[in-house]
Design a binder for these strands. Sequence first.
DNA 1: CGTAGCTTTGAAGATTTTCAACCTTAGTGG
DNA 2: CCACTAAGGTTGAAAATCTTCAAAGCTACG
Lengths: 252, 252
Amino acid sequence: MSDPRVISLEKIKVACQNCSLASFCLPLGLKQGDIEKLDQIVKRSRPIQRGEGLFHIGEPFQNIYAVKTGSFKTFIQTEDGGEQVLGFHLPGELIGLDAILDNRHGCSAKALETSSICKIPFNQLEVLSTQLPSLQHQIFRLMSNEISKDTNMLMLLGNRSADERLATFLLSLSRRLAQRGFSATEFNLSMSRHDIASYLGLAVETVSRLFTRMQQDGLLKVDRKFVRLLDMERLDALCEKNPHCHGKQLLP
Amino acid sequence: MSDPRVISLEKIKVACQNCSLASFCLPLGLKQGDIEKLDQIVKRSRPIQRGEGLFHIGEPFQNIYAVKTGSFKTFIQTEDGGEQVLGFHLPGELIGLDAILDNRHGCSAKALETSSICKIPFNQLEVLSTQLPSLQHQIFRLMSNEISKDTNMLMLLGNRSADERLATFLLSLSRRLAQRGFSATEFNLSMSRHDIASYLGLAVETVSRLFTRMQQDGLLKVDRKFVRLLDMERLDALCEKNPHCHGKQLLP
DNA sequence: CGTAGCTTTGAAGATTTTCAACCTTAGTGG
DNA sequence: CCACTAAGGTTGAAAATCTTCAAAGCTACG
């Protein structure tokens, strides 16, 4: 019982609550002792306020971040003072994997609401993963997942109409929130209309009009940030003009 | 001299010619002996004919591919029989990194001309990379690069006009070809107008018109598949309506 | 030489953006 | 507690871009 390699289920649960990365790893072949090791290099962090930055484009890359609670956006500032939003990051998702190549961040990240994260020093993670093949595999998987996500986004921006984009976006949020135990049909949009528009490659006004029209059509009910999806079937139908992805859904 | 760990510069050069992955690794910290080990698991392959598939969506994932010569496109079939092109892959570039997560391919790959590739069994690569930290790091870098590439593509599709997209696409090709020693101003487009249009999220007719207009404007000269970029400055200017990417260029 | 598949071109049509104005909300300070 | 302000959101009409439809031209390849 005092063997340090024996770890209680309770301890694992705590580790998973503390760190989304660990919770990623648990169901995917990472050994129990390994999770403890992983847990040791993870830095917990104070809450992050709405609008506060996590890192800024160009900064040296040191950590990857796992969202514990709240949400973030990643974006790049444009010349004209605007922003191009690259992604939204909900609890359980990772931020910063694109920075490995250049050793500096290729985008900025900012909290959309009061949030908390786990900070994982990448060089330590790398060292650890040479010792733990299952962790290495898991990192490969996570990075591969990022690539797939972006690929799906390309499909979305490549040849979908405005309403198909918004429907896909909403269902993506729905699914990701449901995965974390939140309601699949009612949730708050932590991002502004402007952010949504930028992310979907549309004008703000278009997004606004789409919400209005979808509400008129009985697809959903929207009150400022709060959305209730009413007709999942028809929303699905809007997205299913999608390519044969062999069961894969568009957007992460 | 008979020590198997000593490897001649000549041997390294050969290994690099044989395998783009190795050539990726050489300048980036992979030890000489490591390259030999890497080289041992790489399978060479017969030439691949134009139109021939490398893998098909849904197939089990076993290998990643490094383009030696020629070019490929990755794409997803759409319901209406069309294709959404996800990317073009030139010599020295990798294909298949998005398939790790699900252990099956998330898109299909097809040769755009007679081409040759290196086949790298991923599970062997994974095992080897646990033994060679520098190889592991290199794979992380390569995957991170894929993510950045996609990110840039999102920027392009997100808020650029049709001519900005085409200009960016052409300069991307130019730069990637130049990197491999080909001309930066004259090259053949191995992909069809249809492929370009799909990739850029435009209609074929729009792409055709854009080529015509850009030729009239003296930006380039185009004769069927052959393109000569005439006014790099103005082409650059078209792309440089781009966001502050801190020196990073749009598109891989 | 003929056909099939790309490519180009023109004109009409649709979607989306832009511009402009107005409304709402949340946050601030008196 | 209220009024004010700035930021975000909505709405309408005009304008632009891009797509769609249709047809014809060109190339490559059998």
